[in-house]
Amino acid sequence: MPRIALPLIALVTAASRLAAAAGSADGAIHVLTRDAAGQPVSNAVVSLTRLGDPEAAPTPPNDPVPIGQRHQEFETYVTPIVMGTRVVFPNQDTVKHHVYSVSKAKRFEIPLYIGDSKETVLFDRPGVVTLGCNIHDWMIAYVVVLTTSHFTKTGADGTGLISGLPPGTYDLVVWHPLMTGTVQQQITVAPAGDATQVIPLSLHPDRRVRRAPDSGSSGYR
């Protein structure tokens, strides 16, 4: 099956309405991802890395981030985290799971378990980690490990907000599981600026396996 190439359309709108709301000179960026058909794209991770004046490494949250399993699916399809974040994989199903990753950014496995896994996994290298379950081929999830705290994941409406951005020039990177090629561009955040970044994405068809029909859950999330 040939890939469907989706053209990219960009639109930048400058605005300053929300500058005062931030209580400082920090700006914000609204992102809106669309596919070639103009439909909003969810689960796209948009991150910004400040250029010229390196920021301090982001501080990971104290509590581990959960990626649960329910109805024999990962509850979150894409989970962006900052480097050094710990993740737990609570299993809320009635069957066991065997979560693994063979990705370079993080190789691990949590052998067959059920309920809350006692094991937390530390993601200490940047990159995309593909999660799978060894006994359920259709289960797939991604952890995007970032070196910046300026990121967002688009929702079902294809929008996301990155706020608290010190004015300056940023490197914008987008990642999506179905994305063909890369999206990387520079944007400038004005003091107390509030811009909307429309990001067109070129996606290939979803090739996830169809799960067995009697598995009691409904499709992908």
Binding site: Y100, S103, T130, G132, R208
Partner: peptide, 9 residues
Amino acid sequence: VFAPQPEIV
């Protein structure tokens, strides 16, 4: 070889 499908490793 998938890990998992459709990720070809």
